[in-house]
C-alpha cells in the first residue's frame, strides 16, 4: 500500500492501489457537522461503509481470530511453562520425549526426501508434457488432501495389518511395516504427497517449455537442461512445497496414530506423545512437546510468508 503515497502517472492507477479505507483517518462522529459547514470536505468514498460499521466488522474479525486462533496458541506455551522453565526442559529431556523427537525427524526426513524427488518428477511430467490420463493424474495427486487422515491410516492397515492383504506374507518373512517405522513413514508419505507437486505445477506450467527447448537446441542433454534451466527457475516454489510438506510430515497425527501401534519409546512420534501424555494428565510434559510443534508451525508460517513474497516478486517481470 506504499503506492498510495507514491507519485502515479495516472489517476486510474492511484485508485486501483488504494482500495482500503483508513479507519484512523476517517473519524465518523463529527463528519456530518463538517459536511454542513464546508461541503468540500464531505469526503464520502462510495466504496466504503460508515464508520461504526467499519468498527464493528474489524472488532468482530479481531475478536474471532483472537478467541479461536490466538488463544489456543497462547495456551500451548502458557501450559508448557506453567511449572517453570526447569520443568519444561526436564520434560523435553525425558528419554521418551527424545525418542519421539528422533523418530519424528527420521520420518520427516524420509518422507520429505521421497516426496521431493517424486513431487518434482510428477510436476515436471504434468506441466511439460501432454499425455493421456493427465487429468486423472492430477486428481490422484490431490487425493490425499481430500481424504480424512484416519482413512489414510486405515488403508495401510488393510494392506499390511495382520488380517491385511499382505499381512500373512509379511509375517512369514518377518517384515514389520505396521506398528513400525516403515508404516509410519508410508502413512506420512501418503498424506504429504501433494505438497511439493502442488506447489510446482502452476509455477512450471506458467514458465512453459520455451527455455527447456532453447537449452536442448543449444545442445544440452536432458539432465543438464533439468539441473541448469528447470531447477533454478523453480527453486523458490520447490522450497515452498518442501516447507509445507515438512510441517505436515512432522505434525501428522490421525494417519500416523492408526498405523503406529503406540509403542512407547519406539513408534511414538511427537504428536502421538502429546496425546499419550495429555491422556495421562502429564500436562506440562504434553504441552512441552506440543510447544515444539507449535514453534515449528510458527517458523513455517514466517518462512512461508517470506517465500510467498519472493514468489510474488519473481512473477513481476512477466506480469504488467
Amino acid at each position: 500500500m506504499s503506492m498510495q503515497t507514491g507519485l502515479a502517472t495516472s489517476t486510474t492507477q492511484l485508485r486501483t492501489y488504494a482500495p482500503a479505507t483508513d479507519v484512523s483517518v476517517a473519524a465518523p462522529a463529527p463528519r456530518l457537522e463538517i459536511a454542513r459547514a464546508e461541503p468540500v470536505t464531505a469526503h464520502r468514498n462510495p466504496r466504503t461503509e460508515p464508520g461504526p460499521i467499519r468498527f464493528i466488522i474489524i472488532a468482530l474479525a479481531i475478536a474471532f481470530l483472537s478467541v479461536f486462533v490466538v488463544l489456543p496458541l497462547v495456551v500451548v506455551f502458557a501450559s508448557a511453562f506453567s511449572k517453570g522453565v526447569v520443568a519444561y526442559f526436564a520434560a523435553l529431556a525425558e528419554p521418551e520425549a527424545l525418542a519421539a523427537i528422533k523418530l519424528t525427524l527420521l520420518v520427516a526426513a524420509i518422507s520429505v526426501t521421497l516426496n521431493l524427488v517424486f513431487g518434482v518428477v510428477a510436476a515436471w511430467a504434468i506441466s511439460k508434457f501432454e499425455f493421456a490420463g493427465k487429468t486423472f493424474l492430477i486428481t490422484l495427486i490431490d487425493l490425499p488432501f481430500s481424504v480424512s487422515p484416519v482413512i489414510s491410516g486405515l488403508v495401510f492397515v488393510l494392506l499390511f495389518g495382520a488380517q491385511g492383504y499382505f499381512g500373512s506374507w509379511l509375517q512369514a518373512h518377518n517384515v514389520h511395516i505396521l506398528f513400525a517405522v516403515p508404516g509410519i513413514a508410508l502413512a506420512t508419505i501418503f498424506v504429504t504427497f501433494p505438497f511439493v507437486a502442488r506447489a510446482l505445477i502452476p509455477l512450471m506450467q506458467e514458465q512453459g517449455t520455451q527455455e527447456e527447448e532453447a537449452a536442448i537446441s543449444l545442445g544440452a542433454s536432458g539432465l543438464q537442461t533439468f539441473f541448469r534451466v528447470t531447477l533454478p527457475n523453480i527453486k523458490w516454489g520447490l522450497l515452498y512445497g518442501v516447507l509445507l510438506c515438512n510441517a505436515r510430515a512432522m505434525g501428522e497425527f490421525g494417519a500416523v496414530s492408526v498405523v503406529s501401534g503406540h509403542i512407547r519409546g519406539e513408534t511414538n512420534t511427537m504428536p502421538l506423545l502429546v496425546e499419550i501424555l495429555y491422556n495421562e494428565y502429564q500436562f506440562v510434559a504434553s504441552f512441552a512437546i506440543a510447544s515444539l510443534l507449535a514453534m515449528l508451525a510458527l517458523i513455517t508460517l514466517v518462512a512461508k510468508t517470506i517465500l510467498e513474497r519472493r514468489l510474488d516478486e519473481a512473477e513481476v517481470p512477466d506480469g504488467d
Partner: peptide, 15 residues
C-alpha cells in the same frame, strides 16, 4: 479522469 470522477462524486476535490 479525476475531473470526471469529481463531477460524478466518485472522488472529492481538496478545494
Amino acid at each position: 479522469t479525476t475531473l470526471l470522477r469529481i463531477i460524478a462524486g466518485l472522488d472529492w476535490p481538496d478545494s
